[in-house]
């Protein structure tokens, strides 16, 4: 089973990289870009076949290492 994890900065946490991308898009002529937030994406291959157990495993991984829940949110998709 494959887990796809998106880690994004929480609202209100400054994202200077997103801001830089926003600026660069503007200078490339992509007008109307109102806001860019940068995040991280992980693909994790799991031996576990049971979706509920897999989700539980990945949630523990996120809480323990993959995300810093002080500043980041995560979203798990199984497929």
């Amino acid at each position: 089973m494959k887990a796809k994890v998106k880690v994004t900065l929480k609202n209100g946490v400054l994202d200077p990289q997103g801001k830089a991308i926003e600026g660069a898009l503007g200078s490339l002529g992509f007008f109307g870009v109102e806001h860019v937030r940068q995040g991280k994406y992980f693909e994790i291959d799991l031996a576990e076949k049971d979706p509920a157990k897999a989700r539980e495993q990945v949630r523990a991984m996120c809480d323990k290492l993959i995300a810093n829940t002080v500043i980041e949110n995560y979203d798990i998709e199984l497929g």
Binding site: V13, L14, P16, Q17, N68, V70, I71
Partner: peptide, 11 residues
């Protein structure tokens, strides 16, 4: 310690 250290505002 509480909080986090993130990318410098200036990048």
């Amino acid at each position: 310690l509480p909080g986090a250290l993130v990318r410098n505002a200036s990048l």
